[in-house]
Design a protein around this nucleic acid. Sequence first.
DNA 1: TGGGGTTAT
DNA 2: ATAACCC
Length: 449
Amino acid sequence: IKPIHPAGHIKTVPSGSTAHRVIVHTDLDCFYAQVEMIHNPELRDKPLGVQQKYLVVTCNYEARRLGIQKLMSVRDAKEKCPELVLVNGEDLTQYREMSYKVTELFEEFSPLVERLGFDENFVDITELVEKRLAQLQRDGCSKVSLSGHVYNNQTVNLHDDMHIRLVIGSQIAAEMREAMYNRLGLTGCAGVASNKLLSKLVSGTFKPNQQTVLLPESCQDLVGSLDHISKVPGIGYKTTKRLELLGLSSVRDLQTFSPVILAKELGVSMAQHIQKLSYGDDDSPVAASGPPQSLSDEDSFKKCSSEVEVKKKIEELLANLLDRISKDGRKPHTIRLTIRKFSSTNKWFSRESRQCPIPSHVIQKFGTGNSDVVAPLVGILMKLFRKMIKVEMPFHLTLLSVCFSNLKALPSLTKGSIGFYLMRSSPPSSSGKKMDDVPQVQVNSCSFI
DNA sequence: TGGGGTTAT
DNA sequence: ATAACCC
């Protein structure tokens, strides 16, 4: 490594700068199936699928070799592979818990960890990379070795500033995956690049349990390798349809399309955003997720058509949520009920919801036993229900969901207090089993106290 | 198509 | 409150 300046002065990245970032994206291999196999090792060498209702939502690689795909119907899956073992994955509790263990593990590397679903994380390791680079330069060490694959098999140039940083990033990514395996028993992929979009795209290039780094010169090859605009993260179903109406289908089509006409279709903000994405350009920061913004519980079914049935389902959902919120420790200030009505046309979208503030006298009673809070909440939820459904008319629901949001910390944990700073990554647990988490929290918190 | 999540309008 | 996005 050559010193950037003759005196060996280190060029640091200004805080908040978007210029020389190193981002890791991680993606666990068939996450739900992995959790089930840890839970029951007998399943390890068998083709395994995780079932929700009549769908196989994910499966292990043994099952994939036999032709099972994600989101395949149970009927098709059994037909394709009669030996397929199915476990029910409708209760997400164990997946959610393992998911947060992974995020907390990554937070030991950098506080900037952003969750994407239960099985993906972005980690901004720019500062860690700078620290290691500085240390290497002080030591006068001239060797750094890359971990994992390089996208396109591009040659690394150790005289290139960004190449060196990305190579150090690949070592850190390897350490993160090692820690994940040693401490949690989980395998997964990682991608290292200069922004979130690119790190996510590159992490999937070598698939189970491998990692890949993208060097800047191969950026256009990466985005160009996507066979359709809908494969660009951020361009979803609706936007894809509108772009197709403009005659666009490849990433190159989008790159070279008139920005003026695109802005007329999508608005200038959205137009600029997705056209930048098409070039692999993404300046969005890794936003630390922290604890969740909302907790919800839902259930789908073929048919629910009477008020007593609705009340029963709502009570079930609420009981689960109250359990979860008491473990979280925070209090919800808003409650929402969501329904999905049956309709033969347009049947997979269109949900309706109504929400309202939770009365303050109900909020107070949240931490203390659950039972004095359920009756008023069921009352509120049934009122919300009647705002959407005229109960004297026939109705046919296929989903109910209850959501707590506007979550606020306990009154005692105000901004200036010690408790606030010790609170972050693991909320006080009623079971007290997580005492081993405390030391790592303090490592991150001490400098503030 | 499940059972979750987030942010923007 | 809905609509879009993500897994």
